[in-house]
Amino acid sequence: MNSDARDALALALETGMDYTGLRGFDPDPKLFHYVPVTLAARERVVPVVLVGDTLKVASARPDPDLSLVRSRFPYVTVDIVLAPATEIDRALDRAAGRS
C-alpha cells in the first residue's frame, strides 16, 4: 500500500467514512451526467456507482463541494467515500481519455 492509500485509509478511520481503492477502475461515463467532468476534476472526485437513488462518489477529501449535484438532482443521495488522490486522478484521466 503506497503512502497515498495509507493516508486515505487513515483519514477514513479517523472520520468514520468508508474507503475504496480505485486501481484499474473505469468509471461509467454516463455517471458524469451526474457529476460533470469539470466539477469532478476541480473537487477531485469520481462517481463510482449509482445504486437505487444513492450515488457513491469517491473523493480525496471528506468534504468535497457537491452542492451543484445535489441541487440538480434533488432526488439523489450523494454518498462520499474516501479514495487515494492519485487513483482518483488516474480514473479521471481514463474517463477523459475515453470521452
Binding site: 475504496t20 480505485l22 454516463k30 449509482l50
Partner: peptide, 22 residues
C-alpha cells in the same frame, strides 16, 4: 478494496437520471 461495476443498461439509467432530476 477495488470497485468494479458493470455499466447499467442505458435506457433504465436515463430513466433514473430523469427521475432524480425531476
Amino acid at each position: 478494496m477495488e470497485t468494479r461495476t458493470a455499466p447499467e443498461p442505458s435506457r433504465s439509467f436515463y430513466r433514473r437520471l430523469a427521475a432524480h432530476a425531476g
